[in-house]
Simulated scan of single mutants.
Amino acid sequence: MGSFSIWHWLIVLLIVVMVFGTKKLKNIGQDLGGAVKGFKEGMRDGTAPEEKPAATANQVSNAATDKNTIDVEARHKS
């Protein structure tokens, strides 16, 4: 009962192709490749340095008290 020879693997491959069909196997291969690609991109994004926050609390309070600030949404509402 040692390892399988090349003929055993070819017979198993033939049976798998007959059961699932080539189109189904192609779709499975594409899905698996997309999952691996997404995983690699996720791992790469996880090591990227974090970005600075858009505005600090001090900047927001200064913008709220600034008399030259225009509310863009208010302009479009009227």
Rank of each mutant, 00 (worst) to 15 (best):
M1V: 04
M1F: 06
S3W: 04
S3D: 08
F4P: 02
F4T: 06
S5H: 07
I6R: 13
W7V: 14
W7L: 13
H8P: 11
H8M: 03
H8V: 05
H8N: 15
W9A: 13
W9Y: 15
W9N: 13
L10R: 12
I11Y: 15
I11C: 13
I11P: 03
V12A: 09
V12M: 06
L13N: 14
I15H: 06
I15D: 07
I15V: 14
V16N: 10
F20S: 13
F20Y: 14
G21P: 09
G21V: 05
K24P: 01
L25H: 06
K26H: 07
N27I: 14
N27V: 14
I28A: 15
I28K: 14
G29Y: 12
G29T: 11
G29Q: 10
D31R: 13
L32K: 08
L32M: 10
L32F: 10
L32T: 08
G33V: 00
G33L: 02
G34P: 01
G34W: 12
G34E: 14
G34T: 12
A35C: 08
A35K: 08
A35T: 07
V36A: 07
K37A: 05
K37F: 01
K37S: 05
F39E: 00
F39D: 01
K40A: 11
E41W: 00
E41G: 01
G42Q: 02
G42H: 04
G42N: 12
M43F: 12
M43H: 11
M43E: 08
M43Y: 12
M43I: 14
R44P: 00
R44K: 15
D45M: 06
G46T: 12
T47M: 04
A48F: 05
P49G: 11
E50F: 09
E50S: 10
E51W: 01
E51P: 06
K52G: 01
K52M: 04
K52V: 04
P53W: 05
A54V: 14
A55L: 09
T56R: 10
T56G: 15
T56E: 11
T56L: 10
A57P: 13
A57L: 12
A57I: 03
A57H: 11
N58I: 12
N58F: 09
Q59W: 10
Q59K: 13
S61M: 11
N62C: 02
A64W: 07
A64L: 10
A64C: 03
T65F: 02
D66W: 01
K67I: 04
N68A: 07
T69G: 00
I70M: 02
D71H: 00
V72C: 03
A74F: 03
R75L: 09
R75S: 05
R75F: 08
H76Q: 04
S78K: 08
S78V: 08
S78Y: 04
